[in-house]
Nucleic acid binder design. Structure first.
Length: 582
RNA sequence: GCGGCCGUCGUCUAGCCUGGACUAGGACGCCGGCCUCCCAAGCCGGCGAUCCCGGGUUCAAAUCCCGGCGGCCGCACCA
C-alpha cells in the first residue's frame, strides 16, 4: 500500500475532522469554551464505548472469576481523600515571583536552596523560610510572593452545611478500597480479587492544554487487584511469558537511554518488574493498545523514578504511546500500591480491612502481640492518637518488634512512635489462619486518551482523501450501504439491506447522495471498514459488492449471506478476501 | 499562572498593517433537484459569518486601543 502514507503533525487535522464529522469538539463552545473539557460527538461517543467494551473484555470478562466491576459515587466525603492522602499530597504549595510572574513549587525550591525538609509545613512557615533564607526567583532573581496552596481536587459541599466538605474523585480507585470489605465478602472472601470500575473523575488542572490529552474531567478505567503478598504468583503469567513489551527502565532513563524490548519472562527474571500480576497486566495492556491499532514499536512503559511516583506507589510504569505532536503520551499507569490504601482506610475508618486465609489445620504458634499504651499515646499525640493506635495495631507483631529493636521507635502514618509507648507481649496461641492487609497492583487507563491515540494512529491519507483506518471491531460505524445509482429500484433494494443490518444490531449508514466515489470517500473519512453497494447485477443475481476501506478491494456476496459476512468480518473472525467464498 | 503567536460561514481561508467602496469575498463541505453501471466527475438551485465576548477611540471598526474568554507554542504544573 505505497499510496497509503502517514503525515507529520496530525493533531490539527484531527481537531478539524473531529468537529466536522462529529468525533469530538471543545465543550461549551457557544459560551466561548472552558479549557480542559471536551464533548464527544455521535461518532466519538460510540468509539469510546467500543474501546471501553474492549477493555472490559480484556480485563474483566476474561477474568470474571476473580475480577468484578462495581460503580461508586463521583462525589466523596472529605474523609475518603484525607485517608487516601489526596487532600495532603494532591495539594501543591506554590509561590509566584512578584516580578516576572513565574510560578514555582515552593517546597522544591526551598529544599533545593535552603537544604531543609519542608514537607507538610503550613504555607506561612514556608513563606518565612523563603524570607529568612533570602530565596529569590531562580529565573529573574525577583522577589517571591507568599506561598499558597493549590489543590487539584474539585471541592464542593454535601447538603446545605458549609462544613460538610465533599470532593469529586480524582481517580476511581478509592471507591474500590472503600468498598473492599463488602466486595471481598460478596466474592466469598477469596483472594486474589480484582475490583474494577469505569467512571468519570475530575482534576482541577492549573493549565490544561493539548486537546483531549489533558482534561479536567475524564473517564478512567481501572482496577485494584488484591492479593496475598506471600503468594504473589500469577498463574496466567505462563500464557504471556513470550509476549513482548518495551520498557524504559529507571536505570536506562537516568542514562538517557531508550526503551528496551523484553519478553514478560525476561522482565520478571531480571527483576525489572517486581510482581507477576503487574507484569501480566502490563502484557495485556500492550495487547489492548495494539488492538487499537498502535504497533508495538510506538508503545513503551516508562518506569517512574522515586521522585516521579505518586505518594502511594512503590513501583510504577506509565504506558506511553507515541503521537505526532507531543512525543509520547501516557495512556495508562501500572502501580504497585502495596498496602498503602487499605491500611490508611482501616486507620481512618476504624474498620478491619484485612483479608483472612485459613490454614488447613489450626496451628499452635508463638505470636508477638503489640499493645499500644493508650494513655501515654493520647498524652503525646492528642487528636492523632486514635489513628496512631489503630495503625500500630494493624502492624504485624514480628515486624514491630524488629523495627523497635533496630531503631528504638516505629514509624506509622509518617510519625515516629517511641518504644516506651508500646508493649510487646509474646504468647502461645492457636491460630486458624493468616490475617493480613492484601497488597494491590493497579492498572489504570484514561479512556479519552485511548480514544485520541486510536484516532491518531488510524489517520492515513490516500491520494487526496483521508482514510481513518480505525480497527474494524471498534470503528464507530461498522458498515455503509449505497445504491450505485438512485433509480431503477436500486435504492429500494439497498434500503432493505440497510434495515436488516440495523436490526442485527449494527451501526450502519445509508447514503444515496452524490456520486458513488464521493460516498466511499465520506465513509472512509469516518473509518467505516466495509461498504455494501447494490448495483444492476444485484437485480439479476441478488449479489452485492463489499468494498474494503483499507485496500479498496471488492468481493461479491449473496444478499442472504451479507449479514453474516459483515459480522464475521468486523468481529475479526475472517479476513476480507475470505468473504468471497460466503 | 507568566510570555509569544493567534481567533472571520460547518471546515480552510481572503480582507486587518494603511479604518470608509464589506450588502464581509473564495474554496471545500452541506441541503434539494437533474445526471450518473464503482472511488470527492458535471449541471441547476439553496442554506450558511451580527467577523470569539465586552468596553473604548472615531462621523465611521472585522480592521486601532483596553479587558475577558478560548486555541497553539515555550516556561511552570501534570499526585
Amino acid at each position: 500500500m505505497a499510496s497509503m502514507s502517514k503525515v507529520g503533525d496530525i493533531y490539527e487535522k484531527l481537531v478539524d475532522l473531529g468537529k466536522r464529522r462529529g468525533f469530538f469538539w471543545p465543550s461549551y463552545e457557544i459560551y466561548g469554551g472552558v479549557a480542559g473539557f471536551i464533548d464527544l460527538g455521535p461518532l466519538g461517543a460510540i468509539l469510546k464505548r467500543k474501546i471501553m467494551e474492549k477493555w472490559r473484555k480484556f480485563f474483566i470478562l476474561r477474568h470474571q472469576d476473580i475480577i468484578v466491576e462495581i460503580e461508586t459515587p463521583v462525589i466523596n466525603p472529605s474523609i475518603v481523600f484525607e485517608a487516601s492522602g489526596h487532600v495532603e499530597h494532591f495539594t501543591d504549595p506554590i509561590v509566584e515571583c512578584t516580578v516576572c510572574g513565574r510560578m514555582f513549587r515552593a517546597d522544591h525550591l526551598i529544599e533545593e536552596k535552603a537544604k531543609v525538609k519542608v514537607e507538610g509545613l503550613p504555607p506561612a512557615e514556608m513563606s518565612k523560610i523563603i524570607v529568612e533564607n533570602d530565596i529569590k526567583c531562580p529565573i529573574c532573581s525577583g522577589k517571591l510572593g507568599d506561598v499558597k496552596l493549590f489543590n487539584l481536587l474539585f471541592k464542593t459541599t454535601i447538603g446545605p452545611y458549609r462544613g460538610n466538605v465533599g470532593y469529586i474523585r480524582p481517580e476511581a480507585a478509592q471507591g474500590m478500597f472503600v468498598s473492599f470489605k463488602r466486595v471481598y465478602e460478596t466474592m466469598r472472601s477469596k483472594l486474589p480479587l480484582g475490583i474494577a470500575q469505569i467512571g468519570r473523575v475530575a482534576r482541577n488542572e492549573i493549565s490544561p492544554r493539548q486537546g483531549m490529552i489533558r482534561l479536567r474531567e475524564f473517564t478512567i478505567m481501572e482496577f485494584e487487584f488484591f492479593f496475598n503478598p506471600e503468594k504473589p504468583g500469577c498463574p496466567y503469567v505462563s500464557e504471556v511469558a513470550d509476549k513482548k513489551i518495551r520498557i524504559l527502565t529507571g536505570e536506562e532513563k537516568i542514562k538517557g537511554g531508550k526503551p528496551i524490548e523484553f519478553t514478560i519472562q525476561e522482565a520478571l527474571q531480571e527483576g525489572v518488574i517486581v510482581n507477576e500480576w503487574l507484569a501480566y497486566f502490563m502484557s495485556l495492556a500492550t495487547e489492548l493498545v495494539s488492538e487499537l491499532g498502535i504497533p508495538l514499536e510506538k508503545q513503551y512503559f516508562d518506569e517512574k523514578l522515586p521522585h516521579e511516583r505518586a505518594h502511594y506507589a512503590t513501583q510504577t510504569f506509565d504506558q506511553m504511546v507515541e503521537v505526532s505532536r507531543w512525543g509520547a503520551v501516557e495512556v495508562s499507569g501500572h502501580a504497585y500500591r502495596g498496602t498503602y490504601d487499605l491500611h490508611r482506610h482501616a486507620v481512618y475508618s476504624g474498620q478491619d480491612l484485612r483479608a483472612f486465609e485459613p490454614y488447613p489445620n489450626p496451628k499452635k504458634v508463638k505470636v508477638v502481640e503489640v499493645v499500644p499504651d493508650r494513655e501515654r499515646i493520647k498524652e503525646v499525640f492528642g487528636d492523632k492518637a486514635e489513628y496512631i493506635i489503630r495503625a500500630i495495631m494493624l502492624q504485624k507483631g514480628e515486624e514491630v518488634l524488629k523495627e523497635l529493636r533496630e531503631k528504638g521507635f516505629i514509624e506509622v502514618l509518617e510519625t515516629k512512635v517511641d518504644k516506651d509507648l508500646i508493649k510487646i507481649v509474646e504468647l502461645e496461641k492457636t491460630v486458624s489462619g493468616n490475617r493480613f492487609i492484601p497488597h494491590v497492583v493497579e492498572p489504570s487507563f484514561g479512556a479519552e486518551r485511548l480514544v485520541y491515540v486510536t484516532l491518531e494512529h488510524s489517520y492515513s491519507v490516500k491520494g487526496d482523501r483521508v482514510v481513518m483506518r480505525i480497527p474494524r471491531d471498534i470503528a464507530p460505524i461498522s458498515v455503509a450501504v449505497f445504491p450505485l445509482v438512485s433509480r431503477d429500484g436500486i435504492p429500494e433494494k439497498a434500503r432493505e439491506i440497510y434495515e436488516s443490518l440495523k436490526k442485527v444490531p449494527l451501526y450502519v449508514i445509508y447514503d444515496e447522495s452524490g456520486s458513488i466515489g464521493r460516498r466511499y470517500a465520506r465513509a472512509d473519512e469516518i473509518g467505516v471498514p466495509i461498504a455494501i453497494t447494490v448495483d444492476y447485477q444485484t437485480l439479476k443475481d441478488n449479489t452485492v459488492t463489499l468494498r474494503n476501506r483499507d485496500t479498496w478491494e471488492q468481493v461479491r456476496v449473496h444478499v442472504d449471506k451479507v449479514t453474516k459476512a459483515v459480522v464475521d468480518y468486523i468481529e475479526k473472525r475472517v479476513e476480507f478476501n475470505e468473504l468471497a467464498s460466503y
